[in-house]
């Protein structure tokens, strides 16, 4: 309908909107490359007069960012892997095995999705404090504390169950006749056939955990255990919000991994959101 005529004003509005969306990123990158004196001039200048790449090196060394990155990667990968394993097993049980109480369990899993994370943080914190009294490795301020609460995601179970339900029963019957057990069938047939759903779950689990904030803020208190997000937050406090070049450089490298991941798998990501309505 009237495509030729109507597209120009539409492009105009969309471009202005897109510029507004992207402006903070341009500003972040520009500031990250400016010298301290140029940064505090007014009116602000968009482009750095000289490119101070040192800001990145100085920011990286001003706080233990290497350690923060290591922690975030370990935690996000462990949570992703855990979600995939516990999710695939439970989804398989719900989709393809008959056992008493299955519907009740399913309802219980469904119900857990209605519980806001903020509601469980106080008790989870106390539980981990108790674990820590028995064994330090399972207490607060450990990898266990950062990982364990997210090792099962009801959302993941539902997502995978939808996918597992599509697999025809004949396949399972044939595999059983060939002497394939349930675990073997899950691993050799169901998992390869459900790659898109597993990839979606992995993507959301990784991104959500990488960007997670409240929980790691509460359970970590040593610098050695902080994730990148908490590290960046403390970096802001440490620099007293004056070294804006360093802060912007740090903001760039903290957000970069997920931004790159998003640019690579954009399509799956957008489809995943449209299909599930999940937000982080």
């Amino acid at each position: 309908m009237l495509k030729k005529i109507s597209n120009l004003p539409i492009h105009l509005i969309l471009v202005i909107g897109a510029l507004a969306m992207v402006m903070p990123y341009v500003w972040m990158i520009a500031t990250s490359l400016k010298s301290q004196s140029q940064m505090l001039t007014y009116p602000p200048q968009w482009l750095p007069t000289e490119f101070v790449w040192q800001n990145y090196a100085r920011a990286w060394q001003a706080a233990p960012f290497a350690k923060y990155f290591f922690n975030s990667i370990v935690v996000a990968l462990a949570v992703t892997l855990g979600d995939l394993i516990t999710g695939a097993l439970a989804a398989y049980a719900f989709a393809r095995i008959k056992f008493p109480g299955r519907d009740a369990f399913f309802a219980l899993y469904l119900a857990s999705m209605m519980i806001p994370h903020q509601m469980t943080i106080i008790p989870s914190y106390l539980v981990l404090a108790k674990f820590g009294e028995w064994n330090k490795a399972f207490g607060l301020d450990t990898y266990f504390a950062l990982i364990a609460p997210f090792l099962a995601s009801a959302f993941g179970v539902f997502l995978l169950r939808q996918s597992f339900l599509q697999i025809p029963n004949e396949l399972e019957d044939a595999a059983t006749l060939d002497g394939c057990g349930r675990l073997g069938f899950l691993w050799r047939i169901v998992v390869p056939l459900s790659r898109p759903a597993l990839a979606t779950l992995a993507l959301f689990a990784f991104m959500g955990n990488w960007n997670g904030y409240l929980w790691p803020l509460i359970v970590t208190n040593s610098n050695e255990m902080r994730t990148v997000q908490i590290g960046l937050r403390y970096f802001v406090g440490q620099e007293g919000a004056s070294q804006w070049g360093l802060l912007m450089a740090a903001a760039v490298f903290v957000s970069l991994p997920v931004v790159i991941l998003y640019l690579i798998v954009q399509k799956q990501f957008v489809q995943g959101i449209a299909a599930t309505g999940i937000k982080q």
Partner: peptide
């Protein structure tokens, strides 16, 4: 539309960016 993918990327970028990083930028 021409450039649909670019628009989509631009509009969606803030949603996936770390909220801490975004907050630091907006603080500035």
């Amino acid at each position: 539309l021409r450039g649909l993918a670019i628009y989509r990327t631009a509009y969606f970028l803030p949603t996936i960016t770390s909220l801490v990083a975004v907050s630091v930028v907006w603080l500035w």
